[in-house]
Amino acid sequence: MSEPLLDVRDLRTEFSTDDGIVRAVDGVSFTIEPGQVLGIVGESGSGKSVTCLTVMGLNDAKFATSTGEVLFRGEDLLKAPGARLREIRGNEIAMIFQDPMTSLNPVHKIGRQLAEAVLLHEDVPRKQAYARALELLKAVGIPRAERRIDDYPHQFSGGMRQRVMIAMALINNPDLIIADEPTTALDVTTQAQILALLKRLQEDFGSAVIMITHDLGVVAETADEVIVMYAARIVERGHVRSIFNEPRHPYSWGLMGSLPRLDMNVERLYQIPGQPPSLLNPPAGCRFHPRCAYAMPICREQDPALAVTGTDPSHEEACHLDAETKARRAAELVSSLMTGAST
């Protein structure tokens, strides 16, 4: 295998707050290959966004400290000086944010905001930057792009603004795009369009993508590899097919059980009981144990490490449960979803 594009090793990010230290990311490691799509799934506050903001160096330096390594083509971004990070941001690593309504500056025209991204990284004439902006607006499917380039953000709908954000992310042909819940703020029909667009452009541009989401459907549609995060840690990871065919962590079971399905008639969607733990003072042992239906005494004391327990050597999870139970429960869940699909 070639050198990974991004290699995150034992990343820990802490925020000092008035109430104490919050470990928002606690020992997260993953790699992403060029052109690959990595899905990071988890509830709000599980540390998925902070992980990516840390990669970008966009956490507020006054309150956040990070340790570990973030190797981008072998260069540790955590140790890189600010000027080098600015060179990389928007150029080699670009980011798409959750809320397109607020992510564009209301007082500047769309064209100017797109061209700015070019001009920050390339010494080209303004005209050429605008030409590139126009090209990208067309690529993301903005109708009458020649005219709309002189519009302000408020003249665009949410979906159109997210297209503009995608254009902005792609404009310098980055190697890695971090999409932080890119469809969460959009309505369902627009979500599907934006996802399809992202997937097509990702293939055209050959960029790798980290897709952060709490929506398993988005992951199933777009990702190659999946990471499931819970309370600042990775609890399960594997190939997307493996994760969906044989989920092995009780938290992942909960996530899957709570997926709404059009083709199934269920009385109530499954709900994971309780709340995600406070990261100020996380529970000892496995962090999921207070909400886990399978919790054993050992779960309260010992923190499980990520380990391969099934047949797929790339599929790991952090759970004390024995392999047979995991396999049996996964099979039950998947078959119930399958039979549901057939009825």
């Binding site: 980011m95 992510s103 500047h108 700015e116 920050l120």
Partner: peptide, 22 residues
């Protein structure tokens, strides 16, 4: 603390530009 300021930083804009322009 606005999102578009974060966007500007994510584009790689240096801090003086972020302040002045955004």
């Amino acid at each position: 603390s606005m999102d578009y300021v974060r966007t500007a930083r994510a584009k790689g804009a240096p801090e003086p530009t972020v302040i002045r322009s955004h």
